[in-house]
Write a protein that binds this DNA or RNA. Structure first.
Lengths: 244, 244
DNA sequence: CGCGGAAGTTAGGGTTACCTAATATTTAAA
DNA sequence: TTTAAATATTAGGTAACCCTAACTTCCGCG
């Protein structure tokens, strides 16, 4: 575990602003939140890249959002979410992850396809629907990829974890989260049974960015370091350093 | 029963067009379908009223949609859906009604609130999601208000029914469908247990648009003709004309 | 320190979808 | 048949988002 902190902002009701943000605006806020982990300043080019937009488009939008009080912005200096912006971002994040968890838990969606569906539904679902979905599947704490779900009140566990690539040979660990960026990759990880909750032991790490050999639920396999870096784990004290 | 006909058009895949219609476009097509029951010509003003838009906005949109082959349009003459447009309308209608049925059946949504939620989700949900929802609640044939759900293939039962206001005193009937236009009204009808499946007997109809007295599941009550006209029923041969 | 490339911005357009005001067309009634 | 009311359309705007091209600012390296 590398570090830990928490976010708290009231998500519901959101005080005085008009309330209804457009889909694109929600996407901007989510992207800025993800890139700036809450309060770090974010480069407009990075937002553009993440949202697949031309940098010029971001400059314009960011100026508008600053005008609406959702973020603070100084030309050529990057942007930072205001409390209001952070609240909106977390609200969208909660929607997204609850929807993912619901699709997976209640409708048997395969985990490599929940992301895209949630990406569209998150802008259309009401708070009530999201709350009902969460209740229906027992108020889960994470989405199917292991990402934490912000609470209705705007709290989110922001614990950071080691990646499997950083784990030393001989260590046992439990998978807590995998990146949901690439469906193809998720399908592959699924085949290997590398998913949240799985326990694994690193057998060896070849040097020079070589393959990492490990056992997952009894099976031995090797994966590249690039893939391993997308898998976040929590070390297990009790399986520590077996002989090899 | 006043008449009966069926619609058949392949809903899936939709042949050669680009495929993704915007939310507003889907709303126009749905409105035109609803107003023209398939193929009757529809006045642009009626579309405007139904969608709560200025008539001028409709003229413009309708020209664009005609250009895309979704409807045929002659200035000052109203519009008619093409096969392609009808297909798209039925696809949206299916989404809408499946979502309503799902919200009600799987998430315990009260029936006066499913419409608004579905109105937003219908533009964001994928065909796969809609199909999974339908499967999860046993492929229902109607939504919670009794409106028929078009099949994946584009078939819809378009049977027309008598309204409760048209039913003569002494007749027994089963409620098949109620208007979902007004949540307030739905809540009231729910309190009275006037909902699809309920069986009722008309005791008397006061003249000059006076109240209609009836029994619903044993209880006697009176409603105005305006409300009664929003309740569609199917007569029951076996409870016909009891003495009074 | 200054200068070139990277990063970010403005300028100028385009599309969708809406609006109000002014105009045209249809239609029903005198 | 004429004509006014009802219906519908164009004309001219606005706002949200997006783009490409041209320009500006920043910053690190020599």
């Amino acid at each position: 575990m590398k570090g830990s902190k928490g976010a708290h902002l009231s998500l519901s009701d959101s005080s005085a602003e008009e309330g209804t943000l457009t889909g694109p605006v929600e996407d901007y806020l989510k992207a800025i939140y993800a890139l700036g982990r809450g309060s770090v300043s974010v480069a407009t080019n990075d937002i553009a890249q993440r949202l697949n937009l031309a940098p010029a488009s971001v400059s314009g939008m960011v100026r508008r959002l600053a005008g609406q009080g959702l973020l603070s912005y100084e030309r050529y200096r990057g942007v930072t979410l205001t409390d209001m912006g952070r609240r909106a971002a977390l609200r969208t994040l909660r929607r997204h992850r609850v929807i993912e968890a619901y699709l997976s838990g209640a409708l048997n969606y395969p985990w490599d396809r929940v992301h895209d569906e949630a990406e569209r539904l998150e802008h259309a679902a009401s708070d009530e629907l999201v709350d009902r979905m969460a209740a229906a599947i027992g108020e889960p704490l994470t989405d199917p990829h292991g990402a934490p779900i912000p609470s209705r009140e705007g709290d989110m566990d922001e614990t950071e974890y080691l990646s499997l690539a950083e784990l030393g040979a001989g260590y046992g660990a439990r998978v807590v989260r995998v990146s949901d960026a690439d469906p193809e990759m998720l399908r592959y990880l699924g085949e290997l049974e590398i998913m949240p909750g799985a326990e694994l032991v690193v057998i060896s790490k070849a040097p020079y960015e070589g393959p990492i050999t490990l056992t997952v639920s009894g099976t031995m396999l090797s994966i590249g370091p690039q893939l391993a870096s997308q898998v976040m784990v929590e070390t297990l004290n009790d399986i520590e350093a077996p002989a090899h």
